[in-house]
Design a protein around this nucleic acid. Structure first.
Lengths: 112, 112
DNA sequence: ATTTAGTGGTTTATATATGGATCATAATGG
DNA sequence: CCATTATGATCCATATATAAACCACTAAAT
C-alpha cells in the first residue's frame, strides 16, 4: 500500500516541533522521570511519548501539550489563570473583526 | 459503540490549546484570509481548520503548527535559524544527562 | 433588498495514529 | 563485572482523526 500523499510541513513547523520534543525529553530527565512514568501520568502509551519526544508531527496536539505541561514546558509561559485572561482578550478582539472574510471578486489578488 | 475512556487533559493544556486556536483565528482574519484559503495553503481540510481554531485537542500537532506558522503565530517567537540553534543547545544539554533514568528499587517514592 | 460567499455543523468512508505486546540493546547501580 | 531496567524499535489490531460532500444559516457587498 504505497503512501499516496504525505503532508507537507514548513521548515519552521518541523523545527518547532523538534525543539518542543527535545525540551520535553530534557525536562523529563532533569526531573528524573522514566518514560513509562511520564507516559502513565499523561495517560498515553510509552510509544506515543517516544514519538512526541522525537518530534513526530503526527501526534495529538492534546497529548503533546499534556506531556509538556507535566514536565513544566509551557508553550505560553503563563499560568492557567493568565491564559484565561489572554483567551478572553483574544475573543474580544475577534468580536471586533468581521464575522466572515469576504473576497473581492473581480480585482486581482493583492497578495503580491 | 460506547466511548470507553476519553483522554484527560489538564486545565492548562486545554486553555493553552484554546488560546492557540483563538490566536490563529484572529490572525487569519486580520490577514483577511478565508478559512478555505488557509486550509488549502496548509494542505488540510476546512473542517480540520475549524476544529483547530476551535481548540480541539485531538488534532495533529503538525497540522496545527503549520496553520499557526502560516498566519504568523509562533509558539517559540524565534526564527527557524534561531530554533535550530536552540535545538542544538537542548541536544547538547541532553547529552550531559544520563541516557536512561534509573529508579531506586527499595527506597519509598520521594515524590511527596 | 437581493445576491452570493463564508461559515458552522452534520454524516460517511477511509486513512492512519494509537495502544499493547514483544524483542534487542544499552547503560545504570550495585 | 553482573544483574536489572530503561530505552528504542517493530508489528498488529483497533480506535479514531481526517477528507469530502452536504446542509442551513449568516453576513458581507452591491
Amino acid at each position: 500500500m504505497p503512501k499516496v500523499s504525505a503532508r507537507a510541513y514548513s521548515r519552521y513547523s518541523l523545527e518547532a516541533i523538534t525543539l518542543l520534543g527535545s525540551l520535553i525529553r530534557a525536562a523529563r530527565k532533569e526531573r528524573k522521570m522514566t518514560a513509562q512514568e511520564l507516559a502513565d501520568r499523561a495517560g498515553i502509551s510509552r510509544g506515543l511519548l517516544q514519538r512526541i519526544e522525537k518530534g513526530d508531527p503526527k501526534c495529538e496536539l492534546g497529548a503533546t501539550m499534556e506531556v509538556a505541561t507535566l514536565v513544566g514546558v509551557k508553550l505560553f509561559d503563563a499560568e492557567a489563570t493568565s491564559l484565561t485572561k489572554h483567551i478572553l482578550q483574544t475573543e474580544a478582539k475577534l468580536a471586533l473583526l468581521p464575522k466572515s472574510v469576504r473576497k473581492k471578486v473581480k480585482v486581482a489578488d493583492d497578495d503580491f
